[in-house]
Amino acid sequence: MTIPFRRAALAAMACALALPALAETAPESTDPIVINGGEVELQTAAPAPEHLDGALDEIYSGWLFRDPDTQTMQTDDFENPGMIFVDQGMDEWNMVEGEAGKSCASCHEDVSESMKGVRATTPKVNKDGALWSVEDYVNDCRTSRMQAEALDWNGDRMKNLTALISMQSRGMPMDVAIDGAAQPFWEQGKEMYYTRYGQLELACSNCHEDHYGDWIRADHLSQGQTNGFPVYRLKDAGLVSQHNRFRGCIRDTRAETFPIGSDEFRALELYVASRGNGLPVEGVSVRH
């Protein structure tokens, strides 16, 4: 089963003339994600942020591009397989570790208070002028305040924590800063977004700006929005971080990818997040 999609007139014309197709295919419906019988409602569309300068008219949650079964899993927190990791993240939050004898909760106490809004505004430039993702803030706390070891960016413990932290912003619109100190990082990320990497010479924009709504075989292309991360990905049967997803996409262009946790991916994370400014944080989304 698939959601019906409206083909843009442009696409039809391009096909008829056999020119290379350039089609943005808007979802026919932009119903909100209604979770737990209405307890939470997440908008799935928003006006494109101004900085996109008309590259997109509207921005859409990746949820709209998934099949109904996958969509349904995200409408009930008991059915969302990502929520078990949020629970594990809470255990992590309270776990005392390191020389200082502290847990996250020792300083930050109630996660629902202290972490509210963090996910919606990250990555951001820290007090020393570096661009930091949520993972960087976690590891800085661990190494400097807890005097514990840093967690592996792509490991389960880190993903559980970022899932927990992300959930505290669920429903809040993405709102990363792109000006001031953030601007050079944002420009770097933008440059990457439009660079055609690898032997397949594909930029993020080729699929996610020019062809969202179209199909690469059975793969329905979304706008590549990141407001649902970390996602529970059915294909991986686990949580997937943003950098892991970036790595996979660039690898699939037959390119030398960038490492998870690299400055390049931080910059790309900021730029892609800014393309979704206005879409609500989904906490832990479900995708395939």
């Binding site: 660079t195 690898g198 390119a255 030398e256 990818t257």
Partner: peptide, 14 residues
């Protein structure tokens, strides 16, 4: 003439 050419789908440099 590629940007960051890879070794097929390994993600490593080609």
């Amino acid at each position: 003439g590629y940007v960051r050419p890879g070794d097929a789908f390994t993600g490593k440099a080609g």
